[in-house]
Simulated scan of single mutants.
Amino acid sequence: MDPHGETLLSWPAPPGSERTEEQWAVIAGQVRHAANKLGAPLPACLPGEPRECGRSAQQHALAWAAEVKARSHHLIEVYAPSAEAASYAAGSLYKERLAALRVPTA
């Protein structure tokens, strides 16, 4: 696994295939690493780590992705120069970026 997350596995899996638990574990670790870069370090509980919680690697990837989203939104709220700028970044700009990500690539 790339410890810095610069080589993130593509999301989602190619059509007609499923990710393995090992692939999800790599993705979960990379997403958690991204979340750690946005704030205080997160606790270790991925499968095979100390204090393992018993959830699947896919569940961890989704949980860490939610953490990234929450931390990103918090950064917008705290550091935007005005309430209007925060509202724009967290609302209109976010929706625009999300819509662009949803467009299938050929």
Rank of each mutant, 00 (worst) to 15 (best):
P3T: 02
A85W: 00
L93N: 02
L101Y: 05
S92T: 15
A63E: 13
L46S: 01
E96A: 14
G5W: 02
S10G: 06
A86W: 03
E21M: 03
R71H: 04
L38W: 01
S72W: 12
Y88M: 07
K95L: 15
G16L: 11
A83F: 09
A90Q: 03
A40T: 13
R51N: 15
E77F: 01
K69Q: 14
G5L: 04
E67C: 13
P15K: 05
K95N: 08
V31K: 01
E67R: 09
P41K: 14
L42P: 01
H33A: 06
L62Q: 12
L93T: 00
A66F: 04
A34L: 14
R97W: 11
A44N: 09
W11D: 09
E18P: 00
P50H: 12
E49Y: 01
G5C: 04
L8Q: 03
R71L: 08
A100S: 06
A63R: 11
W64M: 13
E52S: 03
A70K: 14
L98D: 05
A34R: 12
A61S: 11
P104W: 14
L62R: 12
L101G: 11
K95Q: 15
Y94V: 01
E21T: 05
P50I: 12
M1Y: 09
S72C: 13
D2S: 11
V31Q: 01
V68G: 00
S82Q: 02
P47C: 10
A34H: 06
K37W: 06
A57V: 04
A35Y: 00
A106P: 11
V31W: 06
R102V: 01
L42S: 07
V103D: 03
C45W: 00
T105C: 06
T7D: 09
G54C: 09
C53N: 14
Y88A: 09
P43V: 12
S56D: 02
G16E: 05
A106S: 08
H4N: 13
V31P: 01
W64H: 11
L46F: 04
G91R: 04
P43M: 05
A85H: 04
L9T: 05
M1E: 00
E67A: 12
E67T: 15
C45A: 12
E21H: 05
C45Y: 04
A57E: 07
A90D: 08
P43Q: 09
V26M: 03
A83M: 11
R55Q: 07
A85L: 12
A99M: 05
R32A: 09
T105H: 07
A100D: 02
Q23C: 05
S87N: 06
H73D: 13
A90C: 01
A34G: 05
K69W: 13
L46R: 08
L93S: 03
D2Q: 03
Y94T: 10
L42V: 04
S56T: 15
A34W: 12
S10N: 01
A100H: 02
R97S: 07
A89Y: 05
